[in-house]
Amino acid sequence: MSKVLAVLAIGAGLVSPLALPAAAGAGGDYNGTWSVELVTESGLCDSRYRYSVAVNDGQVRLVASADRATMSGRVGPDGTVGLSVSNGAASGAVSGRLQASSGGGTWKVSPLCSGRWTARRQAMRTAQAD
Rank of each mutant, 00 (worst) to 15 (best):
T126L: 11
A66Y: 08
R68H: 11
L8S: 14
S95V: 09
G13I: 00
W117R: 01
A19V: 07
A127Y: 13
A100F: 04
D78L: 04
A22H: 06
D67M: 07
D29K: 14
V4Q: 05
A123E: 10
L62I: 03
S2D: 15
G27C: 07
A23K: 12
D67G: 11
A119M: 02
G79I: 00
G104I: 03
A123L: 12
S86P: 05
S2F: 07
V36A: 12
M71A: 10
T118R: 09
V85W: 01
C113Y: 10
V109F: 09
A12C: 13
G104V: 05
V53N: 08
V85F: 02
P77D: 15
S91F: 10
A100T: 13
A64H: 04
Q59F: 04
D78I: 07
G92L: 11
W107Q: 13
A23Q: 12
E37D: 04
M1Y: 13
L20V: 08
L112R: 11
L20H: 01
G73Q: 01
D67C: 13
G58T: 07
D130E: 12
S42L: 05
Q122R: 10
R125V: 08
R121S: 04
V109C: 13
A129G: 04
R50G: 02
A12N: 05
L20A: 06
L112T: 11
P111K: 08
